[in-house]
Amino acid sequence: MIDTIIFDLGGVLIDWNPEYVFLEAFNGDKEKTTWFLQNICTGDWNENQDAGYPLAQATEDLVNKHPEYESYIRMFYGDWEKMLGGVIEGTVAILDKFIQSKNYKVVALTNWSNETFPIAQRRFEFLKWFDGIVVSGDENTRKPFKDIYDITLDRFNITPENALFIDDNLRNIEAAKALKINGIHFKNPEQLIDDLKSYNIHIS
């Protein structure tokens, strides 16, 4: 019996993509943008800041490593707000259904720097709807590490078998399932509505 829904934020409810900054920086060159994000300002590098590493220090570390890309590296957090593309409307509508039903505890578990998360809080009203939000940068750990799932379960008194976790990163879903938390690998709102039915949750 599912009584708790746990939402990821970026890629599920919020459209966040560094390409919004770097496609412009590289004059629309998709190949150059992809190379830069796979080799310089990588996902692994950014996730280290999601676990609480200071943005300024991370920037200097990378500039020292790749001085020829200094101006672009400084754009990553300097222009970070431009990476926020807006809400994923279909998923926010699903979230609203859960909130309005009052049948579920609804929380969020996000990999997000605690230095940039306040920007999202100011921009997105729906972040006030949750019963609580666990921000990795506040906890000095992140998904898919066990600690952050344990923090979420303990803080909100969640029974793992009764919880359903929605995340766009399969790695994070698999880590949750290892702790007996049910999971849906999010691809789009329509697929989410269909997958919810397997848990006898029907979103009209």
Rank of each mutant, 00 (worst) to 15 (best):
K65T: 14
Q49H: 04
T59G: 08
F145I: 05
G137T: 10
D29V: 04
G137I: 10
P67C: 08
K32F: 00
E139R: 06
D138C: 13
N114C: 14
T91V: 03
I148Y: 01
F124N: 06
L9G: 02
V92C: 07
V134C: 10
I88A: 06
M83L: 13
A178S: 15
N46Q: 11
I151K: 10
F186E: 08
N169L: 12
D138T: 09
N172P: 02
L192T: 00
Y149R: 08
G78N: 14
W45E: 05
W80Y: 10
T59L: 07
Y72F: 11
E81H: 12
T34E: 14
L13A: 03
L84H: 08
D44W: 00
I151S: 07
Q191Y: 05
N182V: 05
W45M: 05
L37P: 07
S136Y: 04
A120T: 11
A56H: 07
Q49T: 15
T91Q: 07
N140E: 10
I193A: 14
M83A: 15
I158F: 04
S71G: 02
N169W: 05
T42G: 14
L84A: 04
I88Y: 04
G52L: 06
V63L: 08
R122E: 15
S136I: 03
D154A: 14
M1Y: 05
T4L: 11
C41P: 03
A163G: 11
V135F: 01
K105V: 05
Y20F: 14
E115N: 10
K30Q: 13
V63N: 02
I94G: 05
W129Q: 09
N48M: 13
S204I: 12
D194K: 13
D96W: 00
P118C: 07
P189D: 01
N162Y: 05
E174C: 05
I119K: 12
T42L: 15
R74E: 01
L55Q: 07
L9R: 08
Y69F: 13
D131C: 06
G132V: 07
E115S: 09
V92D: 02
T34C: 09
A58G: 15
D154N: 15
H66S: 01
E139V: 09
E68Y: 02
D79S: 14
L13D: 01
Q49A: 11
N188R: 11
Y20T: 03
Y72L: 06
W129V: 00
R155M: 10
K102H: 12
V107M: 01
L179Y: 02
T59C: 11
K102P: 04
Y104L: 10
K82C: 12
P189S: 08
L37E: 04
S204K: 14
F7K: 04
N162L: 07
N64M: 13
R171C: 07
G86S: 06
G137C: 03
I201A: 07
D195Y: 03
E190V: 15
L170V: 12
N111D: 09
F130R: 03
N162V: 00
G137V: 03
A25E: 11
K65Y: 07
Y149P: 07
P118M: 10
G10D: 13
E60V: 14
L164W: 02
Y69T: 02
